[in-house]
Design a protein around this nucleic acid. Structure first.
Lengths: 153, 153
DNA sequence: CTAGAAATGTTCTACTATATAACAATCTGC
DNA sequence: GCAGATTGTTATATAGTAGAACATTTCTAG
């Protein structure tokens, strides 16, 4: 009756990899991103695109290099990303008078409207993880531990 | 005297992305993997390759599909991975008498020797993260929280 | 026992993400 | 004014992931 689809595989010993912080981080991150893509399917938006929109919303007028740097993205790779958002009418580049090299980034009116919906969806999405973790304190605890991994020395 | 190399960028507001579990996981995982590549540079080994060797060491004779599945890798993508390890003389595929479709995976003698060194390096590497996290309890706490993210309901 | 279904390893293809190098235009400091 | 740095950009290379399809082999239901 059961195992109609499951290949009924042998259970492997995973004690070595399971004890590795990097491995566990990787698996968790992959899973959360997959769920993100499911949850945000209607918006056709990748995690990186969401983060760009959120960062521009919080910092209108920032330069491409600034946004890319804050997200840990090489500015060369950021170009295609912002081009895509521009082409969808969500963001726009304005030329600065005082520095004609750089582009100031802004959300368009459409981008602002989308961001409103995205924030709502994101709050729901985040709530599902908080529930899984066991409450807001557990979430804060996780973020705090993750922060220690990234902070230098 | 300072800021000889740093571009002295404006500090951006990151409150939105910073509150997102997936974003923080991603950043932490990227950082840990980068450090892994530095720490294991002498072995010319990527994280995925390490995990394959470790899983074969813990489960000699497993089939490709089993290892791939345990690691969350599609079996199609596992082929190039195991080919590389085979070509380096670290692993070998043996044909099974009772199922001529599947290949049983083993470490070679050379693979075993390398694994001994890798285990040592991994223990050091892991110790550095435990130190950053604030001790073994903090590490266990992190792994436990990560586990809750991945476990279904 | 045999025909259809499933599993296994494999190849191919496509897409995303990342990294580095190079370049033109522009700005800054001396 | 000039050397050097910054900005955005293009091009290129490399991983990692995903899906479809295929031949071979095994399993299973009737």
């Amino acid at each position: 009756m059961n195992d109609v689809k499951a290949p009924a595989r042998k259970r492997l010993r995973t004690e070595t990899v399971s004890g590795i912080v990097g491995y566990r981080l990787r698996r968790a991150q992959m899973h959360v991103f997959q769920q993100f893509n499911l949850h945000f399917a209607e918006f056709d938006l990748r995690p990186a695109e969401f983060s760009v929109l959120a960062l521009i919303a919080d910092n209108p007028g920032s330069k491409q290099t600034e946004i890319a740097h804050a997200l840990g993205i090489k500015r060369a790779n950021f170009v295609a990303l912002i081009n895509g958002l521009d082409a969808r009418g969500l963001t726009e580049r304005r030329l600065l008078a005082d520095d004609r090299r750089s582009h100031a980034l802004f959300l368009t009116a459409q981008g602002e409207r989308l961001m409103t919906k995205l924030s709502k969806a994101q709050t729901e999405f985040e709530a599902s993880w908080i529930a899984k973790l066991g409450g807001p304190e557990a979430r804060d605890q996780l973020l705090s531990l993750l922060d220690r991994l990234v902070t230098k020395d």
